[in-house]
Amino acid sequence: MFIINLTYKTELEKVDQHLNEHIEFLNEQYELGNFLASGRKIPRTGGIILSKVENKSELEKIIKKDPFKTNELADYELTEFIPSKTCDELKFLME
Rank of each mutant, 00 (worst) to 15 (best):
E89K: 13
L78P: 04
L78S: 00
K91T: 05
N71A: 04
T79V: 12
T70L: 07
K85I: 07
F81L: 15
T79H: 14
E80Y: 07
K65Q: 13
L90C: 09
F92K: 04
K69A: 11
A74G: 04
K91Y: 04
P83G: 06
M94D: 02
F68E: 00
T79C: 05
D66H: 03
K85L: 13
T70Q: 14
P67L: 06
F92H: 12
D66P: 03
L78Y: 12
D88R: 14
E77Y: 06
N71P: 04
K69Q: 12
D88E: 10
E89G: 10
P83V: 01
D75I: 08
P67R: 03
K69C: 14
E77N: 10
T86K: 08
L73H: 09
N71V: 04
K91N: 08
I82D: 06
P83Y: 03
D75R: 06
N71D: 11
T79R: 10
E89I: 07
T79A: 05
K85G: 05
S84I: 09
D66N: 09
M94S: 01
F81N: 05
L93K: 03
L90F: 10
L78M: 11
F68R: 03
P67D: 06
D88H: 11
D66G: 03
T79I: 15
T86M: 11
E72N: 11
L93M: 12
K85W: 12
D66T: 02
L90W: 06
E80Q: 12
F68D: 01
P83S: 13
E77W: 01
T86L: 12
C87D: 14
E77C: 08
T86A: 10
M94V: 00
D66C: 02
M94E: 01
P67C: 06
F92L: 05
F92G: 02
E72Q: 13
K85V: 09
E89C: 10
S84Y: 08
E72I: 02
L93A: 10
Y76E: 04
K69Y: 15
S84D: 08
D66W: 02
E80N: 10
P67A: 02
S84T: 10
F81D: 07
K91Q: 05
D88A: 13
T79F: 15
K65Y: 01
T70W: 00
I82S: 08
N71L: 08
M94W: 02
F68K: 13
Y76K: 04
T79G: 05
M94C: 05
Y76C: 06
K91M: 05
D66L: 07
T79M: 13
